[in-house]
Computed example of a mutant assay.
Amino acid sequence: MTSNAQAAVAVDFWTDEKRRKVWDDIVPGAPRKTIPYVLTKEAIQAYCRSVGDLHPLYMDEDYAKASPYGGLIAPPSIHILLMFACTPMDDWMRSPGTVNAGQSWSYNVPARPGDTIRMDARALDKFIKKDRLFVIHDNVFFNQNDDVICSGRGWTIRPM
């Protein structure tokens, strides 16, 4: 199954629960397995519609061509879609019950329709505080030219 097809059907996060990595499998510093994803205009626009961001840079090809970008781009927040599209179903990041406890992102070049996106990701640290499981992780998204689209650090609370 291609990564785009996988992303299109990956709506039930409980499906692969038994295969998913758990707390003891998270190794700080070790790279996470990721999969490339070809970003399509349809995926960008479906994402934009779902979050209510209908800016013409993302939706109107004529407008975007006349802009300094010279064509359609994805909104910076596309990293949310890319995070899951580039993450295999057995990854600990997909665990149901995960809570986003904070994040910080830097944006460099816009993602565009047709880009093949790859993600370099790893857990930086994991710890237990007040009976909660925390993971600090970083993610860097690249296009097919090895340009950094965006990079970020997040804090998540893992399910027990």
Rank of each mutant, 00 (worst) to 15 (best):
Y63D: 03
W92M: 03
S106I: 05
F127Y: 15
T156K: 00
P159Y: 10
K65M: 11
I78G: 01
W14M: 03
P36C: 05
D25C: 02
A10N: 10
R112F: 11
G70H: 10
Y107W: 15
L124P: 02
A10R: 03
V38D: 02
F13T: 01
R112S: 12
P28H: 02
D125G: 04
G97V: 08
P56G: 11
N143H: 08
E17V: 09
D53R: 04
H137I: 03
Y37H: 13
D91Y: 10
W23Y: 00
G52P: 07
G152V: 04
F13Q: 03
G102H: 12
R49F: 06
K65Q: 14
F127N: 10
R118C: 14
L81N: 06
D91V: 08
A74V: 09
D120A: 06
D146H: 11
K129M: 14
P110C: 14
V148M: 07
T40N: 03
D125Y: 09
V148F: 07
I157Q: 04
M93D: 10
Y37M: 01
I117Q: 00
A7P: 00
T2L: 07
M59T: 08
A46T: 07
H79M: 12
Y37Q: 05
Q6G: 05
P76W: 04
H79L: 14
D91Q: 07
A85Y: 08
D91K: 02
I78C: 04
D12R: 00
E61R: 00
F13H: 05
R94G: 13
D16F: 02
K129P: 01
I128V: 15
W105A: 06
K65F: 10
H55A: 10
G52V: 04
I73N: 07
I157F: 04
L81F: 12
I35Y: 05
L133S: 12
K126N: 12
G97T: 08
C150D: 09
A64N: 04
T87P: 11
L72Q: 06
P36N: 01
P36M: 00
P68Y: 09
R122I: 04
M160T: 09
D12H: 05
D90L: 12
L72M: 01
G114M: 07
G52I: 03
P75R: 09
D147I: 02
D53T: 03
T116K: 11
Y107A: 06
W92S: 07
S151F: 08
W105T: 01
G102P: 12
D131E: 15
K41Q: 10
M93L: 12
V27W: 01
K65L: 09
V9C: 00
H79R: 06
P36T: 02
D25N: 10
P56H: 11
E61Y: 08
D53P: 01
R49I: 08
V22C: 01
P96K: 03
N108Q: 09
A7M: 08
S3T: 03
V22W: 04
A101I: 05
C150N: 12
T15I: 00
G70T: 13
N4E: 02
K65A: 10
G102E: 14
D131V: 00
Y69I: 02
R20Y: 08
P68K: 10
D125A: 14
T116F: 06
